[in-house]
Amino acid sequence: MARRYDIQTTDEDYDNVRRLHAQGLGRNEIMRATGRSANLVSRLAREMGLSFVRGPEVAVATEARRQDLAARRIALAEQLQADAENLRAQMWQPTVVYAFGGPTNSYSEHVLDEAPAADKKALMATAGMALDRSLKLEPIRDDSGADAARSMVGQLMAGLAEVYREQQEEACSEGAGDAP
């Protein structure tokens, strides 16, 4: 194998690139491990007939990451849904209201059967935000037969178009026989 030597390149560089490539490292990983430039690593690999083409591996890894993120979004959507349900339930639970005040800055509290209106409003707004975020992460997927209806309408339109075409052909053939 003809090696191109220059001041920057050593036999150790070739050995390192070959060894690290055999371990499955990519060009940038080899570059970081050896402290050599990306151009030098690429050139040495090319001279040794090594390739960094990893398209299929990258595609598999990308798809796995996409699926992992989708699963995490679903889990977060479920947690936000549970948060919304818990916040809504708090509106109807016994609630302690308290205050500090008076000349002695004394503390007083009362237990109410349910949250005061202002607290209910805040709880409902917060529950609404949690539910909204949940639906953005994992939208409802119920088309209620919309695809079937679109298909039926498409078939109906195709049938009507066929009947219209046949009627036009008949009219043309009948009209042709009446010509002088």
Rank of each mutant, 00 (worst) to 15 (best):
A82V: 14
R133H: 08
E170R: 11
A38Q: 08
A122G: 04
L80C: 03
E47M: 07
A77P: 02
S42E: 13
H21F: 11
G145E: 01
S51A: 11
R4Y: 13
R150G: 10
A122M: 12
A161W: 05
R46K: 15
E170L: 12
L20R: 08
L135S: 07
F52W: 03
M152S: 14
R54N: 14
R141W: 00
M129A: 07
K121N: 08
L80S: 02
L156H: 13
M91H: 04
E109V: 03
I7D: 15
G55M: 06
Q67S: 07
V53G: 06
D142E: 12
L69S: 00
G159W: 06
A59P: 00
R73E: 02
Q81T: 15
P103I: 10
M129N: 08
A127R: 01
P103L: 09
L20I: 08
A38E: 10
R32D: 09
R43Y: 12
P180E: 09
A99R: 15
E169L: 09
E12L: 13
L131E: 11
A70R: 07
Q81M: 13
M91D: 08
I74F: 03
E169F: 02
Q67C: 02
L20W: 10
R72F: 02
D143C: 00
Y14D: 04
E12V: 09
E170P: 00
Y164L: 04
V58W: 07
T62C: 00
R36P: 01
G102P: 10
R66V: 03
V53C: 02
I74L: 11
A77F: 02
A61I: 00
A38K: 09
G154I: 07
L25K: 13
E174D: 05
M31E: 14
T34H: 03
D11M: 11
R150K: 14
I74Q: 05
L123W: 04
S37E: 01
G102S: 09
G159C: 10
A59S: 10
R46L: 11
E57W: 05
V111I: 12
E29I: 00
G128K: 06
F52K: 05
D11N: 14
S51C: 05
A22D: 15
G102T: 07
